[in-house]
Design a protein around this nucleic acid. Sequence first.
DNA 1: TAGTAATTATGATTAATATCATATTAACAA
DNA 2: TTGTTAATATGATATTAATCATAATTACTA
Lengths: 231, 231
Amino acid sequence: MKTSNDIINCRSCIYRNLLYDKLNDKEYGQVNSARTEYIYQRGELIKQEGDKIKSFLYLRVGLVKLFKTDHFGKDHILSINKPGDFISLLSIFSNSTYKYSISALEETHVCEVALPVLKNLVASNGAFALKVLNRMSHISDTIIENSFRINQKQVKGRIAHILLFLADKIYHGHTFRMPITRREVGELISMTTENTIRTLSEFKKDGIISMDGKTISILDYGRLVKVSKSG
Amino acid sequence: MKTSNDIINCRSCIYRNLLYDKLNDKEYGQVNSARTEYIYQRGELIKQEGDKIKSFLYLRVGLVKLFKTDHFGKDHILSINKPGDFISLLSIFSNSTYKYSISALEETHVCEVALPVLKNLVASNGAFALKVLNRMSHISDTIIENSFRINQKQVKGRIAHILLFLADKIYHGHTFRMPITRREVGELISMTTENTIRTLSEFKKDGIISMDGKTISILDYGRLVKVSKSG
DNA sequence: TAGTAATTATGATTAATATCATATTAACAA
DNA sequence: TTGTTAATATGATATTAATCATAATTACTA
């Protein structure tokens, strides 16, 4: 991990409207001076379960996974997050330590804003407080909704769900490079690596997708949607 | 559902320290006049997925389940909530309609506070805003943590988990009346009714619990903890 | 660039769970 | 009270997914 030398400040950040558009000049100054942008490489751990929470985390560039490790040592992925997401927001107002770990799936830039500064702004700026509540609610809802969707399906449906998630929510296209391994897909949908691989092979054989190394193309989107709904 | 005639106001509510202790006299007045307490009987639907969100919901007495229905018509229970819990808090700041349903598992009293009043308080009272964020974060974390715990276990471990949850978090004792049917237990842990019943019978045969109608006693707490961790 | 480890891949077998079937008991309403 | 429905219960069978085994390929590193 290294510190970014970008001259970007919050006011010129393309994601400012997601949160900081409620601030005035003075408040912008406060956030900017309490802010550091860090760069992580693929595979790097950004935060580990148990780490003390000292700042608010904002994903500016890249892709990360939020995960927890169970007492067998097996990882369970809670969510995959993309630029603009508040990757610390679940815990910072109720816990003193992270209840999950975060690691980079590709080169990732994370803005960290010292927590006391953020809390002061929440306490002093009502519109900002409502915006934080709104965004925080949204990210939790997404994780809960996702786990609900996964739980009602079996392997085929779960894999289809993940492929559609990557195509629609992350890459906005039908061809993309898998950002996670088959094992990680399994950790995301509570399935073994072998069955994950097997199911992808089956989709390929059935002409629903094509695979070339890490690159996946969805050939029959409609059928994938159907599978994601039924099985 | 009927309206309560209780003379209780927020200031004298035993749960006031969970949220309202940050308010001054005038603000208390605002909450009290925007507040109605409703009483629901066992089985009554309190809110239905899709209902418009008009108020903040506070569970004062009783027990409820939060659940979603999938497109096969099968219910999935997200959580069981008890007095003091904010049963609307996941959605009210990011959605206009409920994304889940709420129903009463026993006689339940719910305080409803008109949403605009609550939002005004968040915007004008910083300490109150931080408290709301804190409590909101907490309830989401619990649901996510729970789904993580359930997902790493198989039937026996899941049933053990639920029995421990009821004993430790809801009834604070080793003997209690099951507030939900076996089918609902299954909906809570993503298992069929038959396997839920089978597993409970097995626990009984093994001397871990005893069952008398709806009443369950945990006879061997240590063993139950062990099962909840391993299987 | 050779060697090592991780990932992808597939088959065979075992274990877990769902489904189907059928009673029994409990709860509820007419 | 009786009829009706929901809940609990248990066995047999089918389905699904996990585990074990082994190999090929890819990625990483010394």
